[in-house]
């Protein structure tokens, strides 16, 4: 499944809930899979008593990975040429996240049709936790 230029237009949007009531256990699953065992994500006692945060929080890369799930659900598998993000707010246990992908441009480069996308992931309060852009190959 690859997006087709003919059925896509600038301004098209895809919105997806990518996390619901995020658990500490899911954050630990991400630590185990990615190899990043930073105590700020895995150790409530350290994070509250030593680091001074209200609780553990999600890896930025978990938020990017969850956003990537919405992205591949929208554009298909193995078609991205670029994916870049800025982390703007922390993601906490209990958060629910929604990703919105907007088609910003459809263009041709070196014989290949591409779509440029803007990305925004917000929490249940509508606060943006991550913003970004991506480019995908699309079929003519």
């Amino acid at each position: 499944m690859t997006l087709k230029a003919g059925s896509l237009k600038v301004g098209d949007k895809h919105t997806e809930r990518v996390a619901s009531n995020l658990s500490r256990t899911q954050i630990v699953m991400y630590a185990g899979a990615s190899g990043d065992y930073n105590t700020l994500h895995t150790d409530e006692i350290y994070t509250t008593k030593v680091a001074g945060y209200p609780s553990v929080f999600a890896h930025g890369m978990l938020t990017m990975g969850l956003t990537g799930k919405a992205l591949t659900n929208f554009v298909g598998n193995g078609t991205l040429t670029k994916f870049g993000v800025r982390f703007t707010n922390q993601v906490w246990p209990g958060d629910s996240l929604d990703t919105t992908i907007t088609v910003a441009d459809i263009r041709q480069e070196g014989g290949q049709k591409l779509a440029d996308l803007t990305l925004s992931t917000v929490n249940q309060d509508g606060k943006e936790v991550m913003t970004g852009t991506a480019t995908t190959r699309i079929d003519p």
Binding site: V50, G60, K82, F83, G84, R86, F87
Partner: peptide
């Protein structure tokens, strides 16, 4: 104890600000 090392470890406070991939 809340931390296994004395003082503020230097890996503390390192947050991820941006990540960009080119495939």
């Amino acid at each position: 104890t809340p931390s296994g090392v004395e003082g503020k470890p230097n890996s503390m406070g390192g947050l991820h600000a941006e990540q960009h991939y080119e495939y």
